[in-house]
């Protein structure tokens, strides 16, 4: 049994009369990549706030070991700091300036942005900004990476590239990841386990294991399979996994 990095036991969170999370139990192990998907408004952001310690549950317990870094939806980079100054934030605990410089150089090499350290975020493309954001989150030695729809602001092609990039970065710098997303494809392509949440109050409807190694192709049968399962679970796929074109057609005509 692997050790648990984050354990939620019957966690509930309500805001006034609205129950957002209801007795949610999750166990996240060290080194695994977990994705949480669910319909919009199901409490994904509430869950993230609880996981990061930003918010407290109404009832239930959250046991967390290790340090947490968060990667935000829209760029969380400070626009008044250069890319390098932003990444430096992630290395505040490093006191030796020479060591800090060495790590910064290494990180910019890792994200393939050597020579861009002096650029301000608005001078970089959306994909480049998000790579700097990843470098900042991976700087130092945090244990848990929480990602709040990190690529949702990017165009589709860039998003695909960034997923590959994330898989590669995690290979270089292993972290435990919780990815909260509404992008089912993203979840299936990246995660070892996908939790499908129900509508409010959110509970885990289904847990899907994907044991394929990363990086994965989105067209790999196992990834496609996982997507089918998630879609069916969310009620977005009517014809099941063996849907042949004719079946889709007949379904469509009705």
């Amino acid at each position: 049994m692997r050790d648990s990095l984050l354990r939620l036991t019957r966690v509930s969170r309500s805001f006034g009369p609205v129950d957002v999370l209801d007795a949610l139990t999750l166990d996240i192990h060290r080194g695994e990549f977990v994705a949480v998907v669910g319909p919009s408004g199901c409490g994904k952001t509430t869950l993230l706030n609880l996981l990061s310690g930003y918010d407290k549950p109404s009832s239930g317990t959250i046991a967390r070991s290790g340090t947490v870094r968060m990667v935000y939806q829209q760029s969380g980079l400070f626009p008044w700091k250069t890319a390098e100054e932003n990444v430096r934030l992630g290395l505040r605990h490093v006191t030796d300036e020479a060591e800090k410089k060495r790590q910064i150089r290494q990180l910019f090499g890792l994200i393939g942005l050597e020579g861009f350290g002096g650029h301000y975020p608005h001078q970089l493309s959306g994909g480049m900004q998000q790579r700097v954001e990843l470098a900042r989150a991976l700087a130092g030695d945090s244990d848990l990476l929480l990602m709040d729809e990190p690529f949702s602001a990017l165009d589709y092609i860039t998003r695909l590239k960034m997923r590959g990039e994330l898989a590669r970065l995690l290979h270089e710098r292993p972290r435990t990841v919780v990815l909260v997303t509404h992008d089912i494809e993203e979840a299936a392509q990246l995660a070892d386990r996908v939790f499908v949440l129900s509508g409010r109050p959110a509970q885990v409807r289904r847990e899907i294991h994907i044991s394929l190694e990363r990086p994965r192709d989105i067209t790999h049968p196992e990834v496609v399979n996982a997507m089918h399962t998630v879609l069916a679970e969310l009620g977005l796929e009517k014809n099941g996994m063996q849907a042949a074109p004719s079946a889709v057609l007949s379904g469509g005509i009705v």
């Binding site: 870094r69 400070f78 008044w80 700091k81 505040r92 900042r136």
Partner: peptide
């Protein structure tokens, strides 16, 4: 508010929060 959250995530507090986040953000 995301700027303040990021700042807290990375341990900026008090005077550092003021000089590195609040003031540059309104410049």
């Amino acid at each position: 508010s995301v700027h303040f959250r990021v700042a807290r995530d990375y341990g900026l507090r008090g005077v550092e929060m003021l000089t590195q986040v609040t003031i540059p953000a309104i410049m």
